[in-house]
Design a protein around this nucleic acid. Sequence first.
DNA 1: ACGGATATCCAAAGCGCTTTGGGAGGAAAG
DNA 2: CTTTCCTCCCAAAGCGCTTTGGATATCCGT
Lengths: 343, 343
Amino acid sequence: MAVNLKQLAELLGLSQTTVSRALNGYPEVNAETRQRVLQAVRETGYRPNRAAQRLATGKAYSIGMVMPIAAGIDSDVHFGEFLAGLGEEAVKHDFHFVLNPSAPEDEEATFQRLAASGNVDALFLAYMRANDPRIAMLKSLSIPFVVHGRSIGETRDYPFLDIDNTGAFYDATRLLIQLGHQRIALINGPDYLTFSIRRMKGMARALAEHGLNLDEALVHHSLMTDEHGYRSMQRFLQQPDAPTAVLCSSTVLALGAVRAINQAGLAIGRDISLIAHDDVLPMLKPENFSVPLTTTRSSLRAAGGRIATRLIAGILKSGDYPDQELWRAELIVRASTGPAPQK
Amino acid sequence: MAVNLKQLAELLGLSQTTVSRALNGYPEVNAETRQRVLQAVRETGYRPNRAAQRLATGKAYSIGMVMPIAAGIDSDVHFGEFLAGLGEEAVKHDFHFVLNPSAPEDEEATFQRLAASGNVDALFLAYMRANDPRIAMLKSLSIPFVVHGRSIGETRDYPFLDIDNTGAFYDATRLLIQLGHQRIALINGPDYLTFSIRRMKGMARALAEHGLNLDEALVHHSLMTDEHGYRSMQRFLQQPDAPTAVLCSSTVLALGAVRAINQAGLAIGRDISLIAHDDVLPMLKPENFSVPLTTTRSSLRAAGGRIATRLIAGILKSGDYPDQELWRAELIVRASTGPAPQK
DNA sequence: ACGGATATCCAAAGCGCTTTGGGAGGAAAG
DNA sequence: CTTTCCTCCCAAAGCGCTTTGGATATCCGT
């Protein structure tokens, strides 16, 4: 049923060469001819055979991903969401995945094997850490890659997509300060991940600008599960001088935090304000919380899609995308923030 | 650097045909010659070019997966773990993935597109529901597939890998009954998934055999997050005639349940017994709970690997695996179970 | 009207593998 | 001593695409 290039060319009375060129956007083909070809493609439903293309071009048409299987990552709620974005976009372009789970200790070997296998045209990297050794490694591998997030402390001369974590939490903190809050807590992600580091920095900066200090007793780092959110919040509330506002690095953490707050008999948005970072997880919408959450929002799925798009465009040399992107998170005010309670 | 078939053949003074046959296990090749070939492969590090193989054989050497993006599935903690198993095994055989996220409503179209694309040799299906319409659909698609789990109510004439959920919870329940428990609660997964249905059935059967009834007030169905585990347990404990034992469909649920129990001031293994199903999630080991958990154990990652193995063997027509497998879960007794408290 | 651009198109050579259709040589059979 | 039959090997034809290296025709200025 499926036609191939040869048949299509015959049908059009053209050579394979011309048809191929028409399809791949080469200039040496008459505009009218190109239209005819495109039309015929539509009518016949012609789809180039990827295997043949791979063989002829040497491209793999697939992107590799080393899936970390360290604790708290592979089973991370956020990971699936990001993956969905990648997959969605990849499938549109008929690209494959090579998913390679790997323990941190043999990550390097895994990357090398993947790059050498010729099975992938590009690699993708996530869960960036400060001074992440993996980026130097990837650079030496001579295979294109894009990083989700960005390292800290290295020259920033590699392609990445990150959100402005510093800015997001700076904005959020400033809002809280403007509302009169002085003691603000932070329930953050793991302390070795760059987004955590930056969010804390953003918060510290906003505080500093208003002559306030970041109280270390009000900062917790942990995996982003709601259990951890719950426990952190509970401990904050038990402190002698409990915070009147709290920032959460994920709505998942916020889920637990909210529970702890309710349990303490406090009212969110009145007794205590809460702002969470919202990765736009479909099953956890901030507007559906009993008290709708004020959030800094940036879709994780969209990020996955964007990275796939860039990776693919890079491989195909189609389209031109910036090499480095920093997305701003929107600060969306809902009911979980309010003026600081008067003593 | 990388050698190809032609070079390898030249090096050996053989034809490509013979080398190819030696490698692919054809009989018409002298045993000694085959050894020489194998030796040369080891020395040169020859790896067949997958693109060329795909083109020549028409096989895709990749397996397709429709990743459901319905609430509570894609971001499921358990999904990543399963995926890791699949990926690990696939990569060993140099197989690719085609990850296709799809909303339930266009799942059918997604499957069809995937099957028709010629980009995958086999499909994989999970999150089985009772009378799942997808298996009839897959059968009509004339593309091999394996199901993780199994449907209920249909003729069971399709390849699957499932664990004996009924048996697992039957065993668990029987143990509790033997320990003197009469009122046993169940914190289960979503009620439309077959594993939930079967686990409840297993529990009911064990109860019935001892003249006990399953009390509907003691059964909750929900997504398997610890939040839900917490809430369910809390509600159970508030009932007038609270249960003395509880079964959880996941250690994630157990996490929440344990929290609720502790909070109620009860001692696990003495005041109340708990048995959870353990999918062997690396970040949530039952032996690391404050009171080590008695569990029914079956590794989700192993299941993923096994399915990949079977799928790949089926495509390569190498090896012979059973078409249908039912794994028994082990009942492992730890400290969270004990005799029912005397009134 | 003519050499040289310019615009369009094509034939054919791969890419690296599998597979078809033999062919040589020796053993078994007649 | 032929004839037949294995056993083991090979040459060559694809698989469906891209790309090189021209062809051919048209158009330009002079």
